[in-house]
């Protein structure tokens, strides 16, 4: 799969997205400023940035959790502001601290997700996802009984179940054990291979480097860089053969933060 192939319809298109939190002082806090990006189907886009860079705000706005103040978001060709329901049918969101329903079992979470997205034959796929996440033995466990890692696995299973065109992951590997991390990575790759576009926000730079085809570096609400790691090296750390970590530090250092992609 080549996500950069021309004429491929975008899974996500963001244009000039800006967001200001009014409660942040006299003039508010600019959380996002003129953010624009395109994500192709099957592409994994890594979203990185220091604390307070606007990563979660960007993801939450794309997911329709926060209202769009300025700019436009289109998911699979559906304008999020005008056709919110159609746009949301194409996306799934996994937050950094998933909170399953205490009164539903693991299997019922999947049953609920299937009904929410209008899926009829969900059992086979649910079984497959549970097996892949090693949650089969927990089918009848209640949401409130799950450990942090299991909650995370369940949230990922629910996200993959309706085969959404776009999945937004905010720190998806928190709380997982090494085997869980490996399984989660494999499932992200497998879903992307099936054509799901993934935006992966994480502070684990090695993870982003390993999975993402392109990276978006945000700093103080602005896009500092958007492109492949190779392009980032050439542009932000010329001559270096370093990892994403080196590029990240170069991009988010005070003197580099003004650069725009």
């Amino acid at each position: 799969m080549d996500p950069a192939a021309p004429n491929r319809p975008s899974a996500l298109s963001v244009a000039g997205l800006s967001k200001t939190y009014e409660s942040g002082g006299e003039h508010g806090v600019q959380a996002l400023s003129e953010l624009s990006l395109e994500v192709a189907p099957g592409e994994i886009l890594g979203l990185v940035g220091p604390n307070g860079a606007g990563k979660t705000t960007a993801l939450r706005t794309i997911a329709g959790i926060l209202p769009i103040q300025r700019g436009a978001i289109s998911i699979c060709g559906h304008d999020l502001a005008r056709a919110e329901r159609d746009a949301k049918r194409c996306l799934a969101w996994v937050g950094d601290d998933p909170q399953p329903f205490e009164t539903l079992t693991v299997e019922e979470h999947l049953e609920f997700t299937a009904a929410l997205y209008g899926m009829r034959d969900w059992r086979a796929r649910a079984g497959e996802l549970l097996a892949r996440a090693e949650l089969e033995s927990k089918r009848d466990a209640l949401g409130g009984e799950l450990s942090r890692g299991m909650r995370q696995k369940l949230a990922l299973c629910c996200a993959w179940l309706p085969r959404p065109a776009l999945v937004l992951l905010d720190e998806p590997l928190t709380g997982l054990d090494p085997r869980g991390i490996q399984r989660a990575k494999d499932s992200i790759r497998a879903q992307a291979a099936e054509g799901t576009a993934v935006i992966l926000s994480s502070h684990l730079l090695e993870l982003v480097e390993e999975l993402a085809q392109r990276i978006l570096i945000l700093d103080r609400g602005r896009s500092v860089f958007l492109g492949t790691l190779q392009e980032a090296r050439e542009r932000l750390a010329p001559g270096a053969q370093g990892s994403l970590r080196d590029v990240f530090f170069a991009a988010t250092a005070d003197d580099a933060s003004g650069a725009d992609a």
Binding site: G64, K88, R89, Q99, F101
Partner: peptide, 11 residues
Amino acid sequence: RLAVMKTWPVG
């Protein structure tokens, strides 16, 4: 959970 609920595909 309202953040997650807001992403559900319903009005």
